[in-house]
Design a binder for these strands. Structure first.
Lengths: 199, 199
DNA sequence: CATTAAGTGGAGGGAATTCCTCCAGTACTT
DNA sequence: AAGTACTGGAGGAATTCCCTCCACTTAATG
């Protein structure tokens, strides 16, 4: 594969993540090509179907989240609180909300490698959160998945909001949410069923 | 106006709120008519433009939220904690998230009466939250708008999630969020700018 | 109960998106 | 410099959505 072609391919994946995040998983593919400043044909040559593109986004994003979790787990030894906050901020930055649809959409016919990556990421995040619960930094009655879903929902683009509003509001909402995750929070209703596995 | 016509009109407004909530503010109008089990012509006769329908949804929902806030304010005297929780649960039930777009979309050319209703609702909710802050039940460094936005974002439909997941997950996330709103939470980043007034 | 005016449904033409292919042309690589 | 990998974007097909039109139905009224 030619070097410049590979670069374009990566640009497309990044663009797709951004556009999916901004305009939803059903955003027109043309918009993604335009965002990547690339011809539409280039997109189709690299990703024959929308799913191919979505899976590529899932692969890279999952890998990044996994790396973040592993690093946070490592940093936990010294300063668990800061590690946790850094992890969350990074995940927010990644706009996880954009990814969830690609993962849930067709859980069944997910390509094996994406499925694997998903399992690995899930394992890493789960371990991190359990560790933090052991440290007493996170209440015991929440499931890792719920935390991820909360972050995803709070970081989903509010299409119709002023841009600077989103930029300022989201970090504050995340902080409030994190505060609510601390062990002294009020009791929770029963947890979600197991088939809800998203990440 | 004929009695059955009025009833259909109200059915349409309810259907619109549900469909807007489920599929976004740009859901096809046909879907709304179908959901209301009504011909598409009936929808157009009652609401010539999409905005007319959106405004009708806004009017009724805002009125309901205002009534809820007023009642909660009243109940505050006896049991502020329970009143607050009841209020939030009711707002969640109303699927406020469906409303926000209609309000933000065209803040400028909002019809006067919707604008007024919005102001009244905003005033009522603001008063309620300030009261709760006085009671020491809500941290002082959050703005009422932020609380509303948080609830809206957490209750927006995750189109691609299993239904029972949403049903079970949302109440838990709301509870976590509320826990984070209590006064002993960690410090917040700077608040959002004033032009962000959504409710 | 008959009359009438208000109200209804949904087919279907038109406009607007979006998809996706095709091929003449560009630019890495060796 | 040659050759091959790669590119862009025009444009036809397909889909989606909008919205009007009119033959028919039903509530109100005397």
């Amino acid at each position: 594969m030619r070097a410049d072609a590979l670069e374009r391919r990566n640009t497309l994946i990044k663009a797709a993540r951004a556009v999916f995040a901004d305009r939803g998983h059903d955003a027109p593919l043309d918009a993604i090509a335009a965002h990547a400043r690339v011809g539409i044909a280039t997109l189709y040559r690299n990703f024959p179907s929308r799913d191919d593109l979505a899976h590529a986004v899932a692969r890279t994003t999952l890998a990044e989240v996994r790396a973040l979790a592993v690093r946070a787990l490592d940093e936990c030894v010294d300063q668990p609180e800061a590690a946790w906050r850094r992890f969350v901020d990074a995940v927010v930055e990644l706009r996880m909300g954009a990814l969830v649809p690609a993962l849930v959409n067709s859980l069944d016919e997910l390509p094996p490698d994406v499925r694997d990556m998903r399992e690995q990421t899930k394992a890493a995040v789960t371990e991190l959160i359990h560790r933090l619960q052991d440290f007493g930094l996170i209440r015991e009655d929440v499931v890792p998945l719920e935390i991820i879903m909360g972050i995803a929902m709070l970081t989903r683009p509010h299409v119709l909001m002023f841009e600077d509003t989103t930029a300022n509001l989201v970090p504050r909402l995340i902080t409030v949410f994190l505060a609510g995750l601390r062990p002294d929070g009020s009791p929770l209703p029963p947890p979600i069923p197991p088939n809800a596995a998203v990440l």
